[in-house]
Simulated assay, not measured.
Amino acid sequence: MSKEPTFPSSEDGADAAAQGTEALTAHLEGFETAGDAAAVLPEAVEAAGLSVVGDDELVGDVSDGDDADEEFEQEDLDTPVLSDVLVAVEELWPESLAEDWDRVGLVVGRPEAEVRRIMFAVDPTIEVVEEALEWGAQLLITHHPLLLKGVNSVAATSGKGRIVHRLIEGGCALLTVHTNGDSAVGGVSDVLADVLGLADTQPLTPAVHGLVEEGIGRVGLLPGVEKLGDLAARIFLTLPAVAGGVRVSGDRDALVQKVAVCGGAGDSLFEAVRANDADVYVTADLRHHPASEAREARTDGRPYLIDLSHFASEWLWLPPAAKALGNVLADQGFEAELRVSQTNTDPWDFILTPGN
């Protein structure tokens, strides 16, 4: 799948688009390899009022005056080895925050190998791996695990085996940051909550081994009461455009303010959503029966539901995650080029709807 994700726009949703691009701008500000960041989603960068100069400068509302020069000056920084990057990753997204069923951490790679280029992606598909190798990455960090279930062989006769072989042959390590990236401060759901402008956020399900602000999902308040249809439109105009779009369950004109979010599949959290008395739940991969039962649990039909693409809901985390890793490496005296994958790994290619 080589469908490049794009950010949609709408003449009828100018205010929503402005809010979405403002949030995107905030996440792209200070991105260390700005030229690479701009190459990720050209439409998104352009919509955010940013432009590319040369190969590694991003100009616009990033910073001003001498501060911009100081921000991009990285003198006397060393190239890290993989073990150095693992220390930085652990600082940001501790493995102790991962769910018991999850499989996170290093999948392929030698700890002593130099890492000059790091690519972030949602999925470790063969297309993403080829993109990383073509760019010359020595490390690919993906949100989703390659080997979530046990295997008896990584022979190149299977899809996962071919990926393992291709990574090793290309000298590229693979690292998974999954539910630890969901749970940590600044993780997937935090970014989604920030994009929506939620305040007073807290985890839907607090982490067992973490800070009080860490855990799966987030719930918080919009700056003011908003129509469900307007909120859905704002989300749609902020996410990468994918075939499935955004599905909504509820009255378009219903007023909402308390919002629960969970990047990725979130229909296992309905009990927590109800316990927090959320007006609307924003997540992905909602199945028929859990969604129907959630709506029927209360006579007023709440929580209303906004169902996103799994890929799109988690992609938003990649640019700020790459920026955060670059900052931690710099603090530790290291420098590496960082890039976000341009490959759209949403599995759907088109959708049929009434009248289309």
Rank of each mutant, 00 (worst) to 15 (best):
D36W: 08
P5W: 00
R218A: 15
G35H: 04
L147Q: 10
V188H: 04
V225C: 06
A38D: 04
I141Y: 07
D36Q: 13
L133N: 07
H310M: 07
L24Q: 12
V188R: 00
V85C: 06
L222C: 09
V107C: 11
G159L: 13
E112W: 10
V273Q: 03
A265E: 01
A297D: 08
A88N: 13
A39H: 04
T33G: 11
V188I: 15
V53E: 00
R298A: 08
K149P: 06
A68R: 11
L255R: 14
T238N: 03
A312G: 01
E293A: 03
A278I: 04
L228V: 01
E46L: 10
F72K: 14
L211P: 05
G229F: 05
H178I: 06
D279W: 00
V128C: 00
T201V: 12
A68I: 09
R234V: 01
D253T: 09
P240Q: 00
D84M: 05
P290W: 03
P94T: 12
L325N: 08
E11K: 07
W317V: 05
F350Q: 14
A199Y: 07
F270Y: 14
R287A: 04
A26L: 11
I118V: 15
L175S: 11
R252L: 15
P80M: 00
V328C: 12
E335P: 08
L316I: 09
E22V: 04
P303I: 04
L222W: 10
R234K: 14
G326M: 01
L28S: 02
T201G: 10
E75I: 08
W315M: 09
L286G: 02
E169D: 11
E43I: 00
H143N: 14
R110C: 06
E32H: 15
I126W: 05
S51A: 14
F31Q: 09
L269S: 06
E271Q: 12
A294F: 03
H143A: 08
D66P: 10
G161E: 04
G159K: 13
F334A: 01
E134H: 09
G250T: 02
F334L: 11
I168Q: 10
A297L: 07
D56K: 06
L338M: 15
L175D: 11
E296V: 01
A18M: 06
Y304V: 04
A275E: 13
T345M: 00
D56C: 02
A88M: 11
